[in-house]
Amino acid sequence: MDLVSGIVVYVILWWWILFMVLPVGVRREDDVQQGNDAGAPKKPMLAVKLLATTVIAALVWVGVDLVVRSDLISFREMIRDWP
């Protein structure tokens, strides 16, 4: 995988994993004041979630890169056999 492809795959993985991590640990506000959304979390912990997303995306990206480089799944052969 070349540099640009690697960056694109990492960015896609990062966003995908971010949307999976965002709902983790969300607790709703018990005392909702007027003008606030009842579904807004008390402590969103965004910094922790962004760090976790970055680490998880990096680990998944390494796995994807290893699979692509090892030709375990050869996308070039799949295209050649395409009808």
Score class of each variant (00 low, 15 high):
V8H: 03
V55E: 05
I12E: 10
P41K: 07
L50Q: 03
V62I: 15
L51Q: 07
L22P: 01
V4C: 06
V48T: 09
D2Y: 09
I17F: 03
V11W: 03
V32A: 02
L46P: 01
W15E: 08
G35P: 02
V4R: 12
A57N: 00
I56Q: 01
L46Q: 05
I56G: 02
V62L: 13
G25L: 08
W61E: 06
V9L: 13
A52V: 11
K49F: 02
D31P: 00
L3D: 11
V24L: 14
W15P: 00
K49G: 01
W61G: 02
D30S: 15
L18I: 09
V32T: 07
K49M: 02
M1E: 11
P44C: 01
E29Q: 15
Q34S: 11
Y10R: 04
L13R: 06
K42S: 07
L50F: 14
V26Y: 06
K49P: 00
T53A: 02
V24D: 07
M20G: 09
I12V: 15
Q34W: 09
T54C: 07
A57Q: 01
T54D: 04
P23C: 08
L51W: 07
Q34Y: 11
L18G: 10
Y10D: 08
L3Q: 13
W14M: 07
K42H: 01
R27Y: 08
A57D: 01
V32D: 05
V62K: 03
D2T: 13
G35F: 03
V4L: 15
W61N: 05
D2V: 06
G25V: 10
A40H: 04
P41M: 08
L3H: 08
V55N: 06
R27V: 14
S5L: 13
R28H: 13
W14G: 03
A40E: 14
P41R: 04
G6E: 09
L18M: 12
A58V: 05
R27T: 14
V32W: 04
G25A: 14
I12L: 15
G39M: 08
V55C: 09
P41I: 06
I56A: 13
A38T: 05
G35Q: 02
V62W: 08
N36G: 00
G25N: 11
T54M: 07
R27S: 10
